[in-house]
């Protein structure tokens, strides 16, 4: 058992900004798929993908909603690529206090891309027939969960030991195991 490897499916969204025609079909269908009931309404403002577009400057960047961030970054990023300057935070996926992106328009709750669970491919990819959005699925072999957990535990303990010293950690563990058994 311990030697067995586990297979994990990894979905990579590939975004080719050069192929994007700026039509926002991805936003339309994402918001429709996530409506309750499914497809009953649509509203790009609720979409978990958004095309940052500025046609006159030839900026077309589809971005997916990622993790929620409680606070904004200490600094912001502004990229220039091939002479085109992108607005602050263009490439960032976070739903964060610094901007309106990836939040439910009425409640303000954060949105996150879930790759359209249950579908072969996310809907945005299915509806992007210009192929700016494609999805690649691959399987990776990963170590059995137990080993992984063990590694994580040891990394965590090492960090704590570095910070507090091994003795204090051992004392604490002894105390905790005593109180648990009593």
């Amino acid at each position: 058992m311990a030697d067995e490897k586990k297979k994990k499916t990894i979905k990579t969204l590939k975004i080719d900004v050069d192929k994007c025609n700026g039509c926002r079909a991805c936003e339309v269908i994402c918001s429709a798929f996530h409506a309750e009931p499914k497809y009953s309404s649509n509203n790009p403002a609720r979409s978990r993908i958004r095309v940052v577009r500025d046609p006159l400057r030839d900026v077309y960047v589809p971005v997916y909603a990622g993790e929620y961030a409680a606070a904004e970054c200490a600094g912001r990023d502004k990229y220039t690529i091939d002479g085109k300057e992108y607005d602050e935070c263009t490439f960032c996926r976070a739903s964060c206090p610094s901007r309106d992106e990836f939040k439910e328009p009425d409640s303000g709750l954060p949105l996150k891309c879930d790759m359209c669970e249950g579908e072969d491919e996310p809907l945005c990819v299915q509806w992007c027939i210009t192929d700016a959005l494609t999805c690649e699925v691959r399987e990776e072999e990963v170590a059995e969960d137990e080993t992984e957990e063990q590694e994580e535990l040891e990394i965590g303990l090492e960090v704590l030991a570095d910070k507090y010293g091994m003795e204090k950690i051992l004392d604490a563990v002894a105390r905790m195991s005593n109180s648990n058994s009593s």
């Binding site: 429709a32 409506a35 009931p37 497809y39 009953s40 309404s41 649509n42 509203n43 403002a45 609720r46």
Partner: peptide, 11 residues
């Protein structure tokens, strides 16, 4: 605009 547009028979 940030409101929903609804359709009658979604599926």
């Amino acid at each position: 605009g940030t409101k929903d547009v609804n359709v009658a028979r979604p599926a």
